[in-house]
Simulated assay, not measured.
Amino acid sequence: MVPELNVLGLAIPTHGFFVGLGVLVAAVVFTAETRRRGMVRYENLVAVTGALVGGAIGMRLSGWAAQVDLSGLPSLAAAWEFGSRSILGGLLGAYIGVLVAKWLIGYTERTGDLFAPAVALGMAVGRVGCLLTEAPGRPTDLPWGITAPVTTPACPGCVAGEAMHPSFVYEIAFQLLAFLVLLWLRDRLSAPGELFTLYVAGYAVFRFAVEFTRANETVWLDLTRPQWFLVPALLLLSVRLAYNWRRGRYDSPRPEPRAARLTSTSN
């Protein structure tokens, strides 16, 4: 584990460093995508601000929710300061933050296509911090299992020195692959904004599956809190995907008729 990085003589928390780097990378990709699509405008800056604020709030509040049990409730202030930084809570908070920000300024244009590739690559970078600071996963006999020192934070079901799933490596690989697929799909969908829907759906399925290799505590029916969070989310996403599929919203845009192209060229 690498809890701190030495940068120019300064000790910087590893997890926070890579989360910040991931946000920076996402901002660069988002800016490049807005320029590519000719959508550089202040409304999108407001949407990004809403995503950052909502994501920060969602991560902190999800840390508080994860601690709720019958033995007592931690104070909201303490959870804000020390709560776990849940990726799922951050994504939900960022999504709500964008919606609220756009509502406040009366901006109705879809922005999901701008966010999807940026979020995927930013998540891949941010997860490097998790890989270097958190318990990797549950015990495994697979040849690529990794071990963690005794100082690793609590890992339910894990034994110090025993090979464990490199669950964060799985997620980094998924996010990098998702980024490439999203770049390939971004001009191949007829419905604006649905690129983000496909990304969230793909990540939800992956995250539910990868939780079986993670070191998270199971709470009911051998499922973790993130998995129970994802159950209703997956149902809603399935309904939306089926609805959009039947209406052809995931079809490639139809090419412009040749006659129309000739007319526009002659003009």
Rank of each mutant, 00 (worst) to 15 (best):
I87S: 02
R110D: 12
R110W: 00
V125R: 06
A77N: 00
L121M: 13
V125E: 04
E43K: 01
A77P: 00
A65L: 15
G90C: 00
E43T: 08
L91G: 13
A66H: 09
L88K: 00
L73T: 13
G112Q: 06
T111V: 15
A56T: 12
G106D: 12
A120D: 05
A101R: 06
V48S: 06
G55N: 05
R60H: 05
I57K: 07
G106M: 11
L99M: 15
A94E: 07
M123N: 02
G106T: 11
F82Y: 13
V48R: 01
P117Q: 10
L61H: 01
T108R: 15
G126H: 00
V98G: 10
L76E: 03
V46F: 04
F82W: 12
W103A: 13
A79K: 09
E81Q: 13
G54F: 01
V128D: 09
W64L: 12
E81P: 00
F82D: 08
L99I: 14
L104T: 12
Y107Q: 11
T108P: 08
V125F: 03
R85Y: 09
R60Q: 12
I57L: 14
A120N: 06
V98D: 09
L45Q: 14
S86N: 08
A94K: 04
L73A: 10
R110E: 14
S62D: 11
S71C: 01
A124I: 07
V48Q: 00
W103L: 12
W103P: 02
G72S: 06
I96A: 14
V53D: 03
L92I: 15
N44Q: 07
L114H: 10
A51K: 07
Y107R: 04
I96L: 15
G54K: 02
L91E: 09
Q67H: 06
A79M: 07
A79R: 10
L114E: 04
F115E: 05
L73R: 09
Y95A: 14
R60E: 06
G89C: 11
G93Q: 01
A120C: 03
V53G: 01
I87L: 09
G97W: 04
R110F: 03
L76I: 12
M123Q: 14
G83E: 06
A79F: 09
L114F: 10
T108Q: 15
V53A: 13
W103G: 14
I96K: 00
V119L: 13
F82C: 01
R85V: 07
S84W: 12
S71D: 15
S86G: 12
A120R: 02
A124S: 10
L61S: 02
